[in-house]
Nucleic acid binder design. Structure first.
Lengths: 200, 200
DNA sequence: CGGCGATGTCACCGCTGTCAACATCAAGAT
DNA sequence: ATCTTGATGTTGACAGCGGTGACATCGCCG
């Protein structure tokens, strides 16, 4: 029953992650199982166990790869936007939404807390890499008198919430494709005075 | 083997939904299974089949109940805020985030498209009820010269994205509890000129 | 009183994640 | 050259899951 390939795969771990991402985009999160990934690579159903701590481990590795691609997408967009900080923020925001719409299942997995291994160091590193890009995009964009730390922090949170929420509502089919964000015509302070997101 | 209770439950459907919501808050989405819900009510694992179209049907019924509570929470908050439209929008936004933080799994289920039955009429009705509240909160808050329809539409989308994104990032453990939204100090037009969310 | 639809049970299927035991291979030690 | 050791992959088994169909039981309505 010994098939063509050698007994050992050579680089099974990487192959499983790639196959997992492919499966994710083809069949969505419910279609991504340890057995399905193993079968796609052509390996026994229990082989992934040697490389990942169960399903959560595989999902964490996939999510980590997703965050690396995410960070790269944001970084590329900002680099292409040049030096102007407004243009860079704009480009990063566009790239954020574009990434989510292009890889819905991967994007969803990246932020689905309970399916990922909380102790995965590589995932944490990749996450930070991605967050740093976003933080960079929002840096220095508080329009208050001084650009002190709290204002910068708020700018990050603000930009991130807006972009992330829009992406999620789009992915969840809540916002139609015809929705527009005419941000320039809105004074957000009118809608949401400060203190809204203070601790309960 | 006939236990105490009568053969027929009496109001099994409602009992299953309530048990489902309880399980959801106790064990999260992964802990919510048809068998677990049936066991909690004290009925065989196949009994729910007579009341729901599979797991998706039960989840849809639970999500519908969630949307009804959500709409009620927003409505109550706005009613308590009085007549001032800014205060009403503020109250609705606060209630939106508070609901998400108080019932994380339920809130997540409500917006997890692929687990719900797309044809569930009751779910659609409850959803609309909730969306109407949010639309009401954002009504008339475009600060452009004229409050024509596009501006109103944008205000809804804007407010919703911001609040929804903030809630999701909080639930996913991305934003710490110390994060603040100093919205008043930000001119959002500076960060996100219009056209950001145009079609790709 | 008798049937009949609604409701709940039981037995089974295929799929999943996890585990334990075993087989195979590569590389270093003797 | 041979042995040993650890990593890697296979096989078989288990329990839990959602789904299905056959059957049992109840309450209602003619």
């Amino acid at each position: 029953m010994a098939q063509e390939g050698p007994y050992h795969h050579g680089n099974l771990r990487a192959a499983l992650v790639i196959a997992g991402i492919d499966l994710l985009e083809e069949a969505g999160l419910p279609g991504l199982s340890l057995r399905a990934v193993a079968a796609r690579v052509g390996v026994s159903h229990s082989a992934p166990r040697n490389h990942f701590r169960g399903l959560a481990g595989l999902l964490s590795a996939i999510a980590a790869e997703g965050f690396r691609r995410h960070a790269a997408a944001l970084g590329d967009a900002m680099a292409e936007a040049g030096e102007d900080r407004a243009a860079r923020a704009q480009a990063a925001a566009e790239a954020y939404v574009a990434f989510a719409l292009a890889s819905p299942a991967l994007f969803t997995l990246m932020f689905s807390k309970d399916r990922l291994d909380a102790d995965d160091a590589a995932l944490w590193a990749a996450r930070s890499e991605s967050y740093d890009r976003l933080r960079e995009a929002a840096r220095g964009y508080a329009s208050g008198p001084a650009a002190s730390l709290p204002e910068n922090l708020a700018a990050e949170t603000y930009l991130w919430s807006l972009v992330h929420g829009f992406a999620r509502l789009r992915l969840d089919g809540v916002l139609g494709k015809s929705e527009r964000m005419l941000g320039r015509q809105l004074e957000v302070g009118e809608i949401l005075p400060k203190g809204l997101f203070d601790e309960p």
